[in-house]
Amino acid sequence: MARDAFYQQVKNALIKDGWKITSDPLTIPISETIKVQIDLAADNAIAAERDNDKIAV
């Protein structure tokens, strides 16, 4: 997967902000022949009693 000039800066900013990188890249199967790849997936707990927020960048 080709990475653009901002990839590492975005990844570093997410980590610095407390996000945990969970996939690099995140692959989402649409069908048996079609798959989408997203550069990064990350999650960050908002509070112990709440669900985790998740993002894909």
Rank of each mutant, 00 (worst) to 15 (best):
Q8E: 14
P29I: 05
I21R: 00
N44M: 01
G18F: 03
K35E: 14
L40T: 01
I30Q: 13
R50I: 04
T27S: 15
E32N: 11
R3P: 03
A5G: 12
K20R: 14
K35Q: 15
D4V: 03
I28P: 03
R3S: 08
I21E: 03
L14N: 02
P25E: 01
A41V: 01
L26S: 10
V57T: 06
V36K: 12
D24P: 10
A2M: 04
V36P: 04
L26M: 15
E32R: 03
P25L: 05
E32V: 02
Y7P: 01
A41Q: 01
N44T: 02
T33H: 13
K35C: 14
L14C: 05
Q9A: 12
N52E: 09
D53F: 13
V10R: 02
I34D: 12
S23F: 15
D24T: 05
A45V: 00
S23I: 03
K54F: 13
A41L: 02
D24L: 04
A13K: 01
L14P: 00
I21K: 07
E49C: 05
K16V: 09
I55K: 03
D53P: 07
Q9C: 01
D51P: 12
L14K: 04
M1D: 13
N12F: 03
T22Q: 10
A45F: 06
A45Y: 07
A47M: 05
I34Y: 13
S31A: 09
A2P: 00
W19A: 03
T22Y: 12
Q37S: 12
D51I: 06
A2T: 03
A47P: 00
I46D: 07
A2H: 04
L40R: 00
T33D: 14
N12V: 02
Q8P: 04
D4C: 10
D24V: 05
V10L: 11
K35A: 15
N52H: 08
L40I: 07
A5F: 07
I34K: 11
K54S: 11
N44Y: 07
F6K: 03
A13Q: 10
I30N: 12
E49D: 11
F6S: 08
D43A: 07
L40H: 05
I38N: 03
D43I: 06
I38A: 10
N44K: 12
M1P: 09
K20Y: 10
W19E: 06
P29F: 15
L40M: 13
N44S: 00
P25Q: 08
P29H: 14
L14H: 01
L14I: 08
D53W: 10
I30S: 13
A13G: 06
T22E: 14
E32C: 05
I30R: 11
P25G: 08
P25S: 09
V10M: 09
P29A: 15
D17A: 15
K11T: 02
K54T: 03
K54Y: 13
V10I: 11
R3F: 08
E49L: 02
I46T: 05
A45M: 04
A13M: 08
A41R: 00
D39S: 09
A41S: 13
A56F: 04
I28H: 12
K11F: 07
I21F: 01
Q37H: 11
N44P: 06
I46M: 07
